[in-house]
Design a protein around this nucleic acid. Structure first.
Lengths: 241, 241
DNA sequence: GACAAGCAGATTGTCGACAATCTAACAAGA
DNA sequence: TCTTGTTAGATTGTCGACAATCTGCTTGTC
């Protein structure tokens, strides 16, 4: 008998579908921070009833990219510079841990997957597709968390990633210019293939710091603009993360 | 005018109420791992409709203590020894980070709160209230995460805590004997008040290891029993975390 | 003009009923 | 006996309607 590995079939509930649509809209910046999600309007647009939509929104609230106030509404979380700082400082700790755990588990499949994801980033960069570039870069960095064989770590990192992706998307959207084509991940990949674990850990920290400072400056700019006039609160009442 | 600090009024939605009830039932072990949650039965018992119940369950799924399979049901997560190991190893990393961040922020209010929570643990120990003992001990250890001034860290730790509390409750429930009255947290508190940060970090690791080994052994026992006969899968199909 | 009371309008929270799907038992055929 | 098709019951997923709550405006009063 031929060996066949079937992957699980897709979740075919409307709820799961809605979660995907909403998450994508938020993470790509199509839904802006602070924006209110009108249940009736969205449910009509998606041609579903409010029940599965509300359940989907509840999931995203727990996922940390929406926030809900009873009888007032559900909003996309607001991004403060402190949030970004918090997320990044924790991310460093997680990266260090992930590298340590992944290190002894590296094998040929790991290296192949590393190359595959690295190639995806380079492709997106060539295509000048900034959204995809963010996605693929995060997937590249996510490999160590997937490989570390620690489900809680992976879950934690994925939650963090959601926000980071949102922040980056906003940043890119604001600058609205093609990112430099120079490959910033080259060293990262090389070190992960090498034999000096400490060096890899150090680089993960330093490299991420680079993008981080830019992002932080952008967020601070947003807050200043927001505080001296009508800010990003598009409708209803806003709320911090 | 007298200074009055009002705390936010309670969430008065049925959904929030249900979340609390279910979470408590799971974390205290009244709902066992693998057990299926029948929506109709629970909604009738709580005298609510299925809509808010389902939304509440969706939240707990994202919180990580329930797991859902479309058209099959929602189940309390199963506890494997690996899950516990994963959670604990990550917890150590987070503790280390939390202590580092909390250290320069310690003040009189911190020390007071530390003493208050420590007293609560000792009270629960005297009362032989094991459930409360677990709760208060986790709250004591949670202080450094609350004080670290990092919202993402706090949120992550709270998610971890949910599971740890569940594991501990199961453990205690299984042993069903009063825990030793000796105060294991004395040193921890003392070190957090001292001036040697590294020592505090080291102790947090070592101390937790103690309880951990016991818990791990218990979980391994559960798995062995489970694999050679009818395990904890009470109804429907079980599923790993 | 300032301020409280009251009244729409809109939006969220909840309900009861129906549709889609799964599970298990049973019958039919090789 | 094993496999396959069918059916009934139970459970989950979804829908449309109603109740509760909030927001902003209007009205009336001082």
């Amino acid at each position: 008998m031929a060996k066949l590995d079937f992957s699980p079939i897709a979740d075919t509930t409307r709820r799961a579908e809605i979660v995907g649509l909403l998450r994508r809209a938020i993470l790509t910046g199509r839904l802006e921070p602070g924006q209110k999600l009108n249940e009736l309007r969205i449910s009509e647009q998606m041609r579903v009833s409010r029940a599965p939509l509300r359940e989907a929104m509840r999931e995203l609230v727990q996922e940390g990219i929406l926030t809900s106030i009873p009888y007032a509404g559900t909003f996309v979380i607001n991004v403060t510079a402190k949030d970004i700082d918090d997320a990044y400082s924790l991310n460093k700790v997680l990266d260090e841990f992930a590298i340590e755990r992944t290190w002894p588990l590296r094998d040929q499949r790991f290296f192949d997957e590393l190359d595959r994801r690295h190639a995806a980033v380079k492709q997106a960069t060539r295509d000048l597709d900034t959204t995809r570039q963010i996605e693929t870069a995060l997937q590249l960095h996510g490999l160590i968390h997937e490989w570390a064989d620690n489900s809680v770590l992976l879950e934690t990192w994925q939650r963090l990633t959601s926000r980071l992706q949102m922040y980056f998307a906003l940043h890119q959207r604001a600058r609205n210019e093609p990112v430099p084509a120079v490959d910033a991940h080259e060293t990262y990949v090389r070190l992960l293939k090498g034999s000096d674990m400490r060096a890899a850990q150090r680089h993960a920290k330093d490299h991420i710091d680079l993008d981080f400072e830019e992002l932080l400056a952008y967020a601070r700019g947003l807050e200043q603009r927001g505080s001296k006039g009508a800010g990003a609160d598009r409708a209803g009442r806003p709320k911090g993360g």
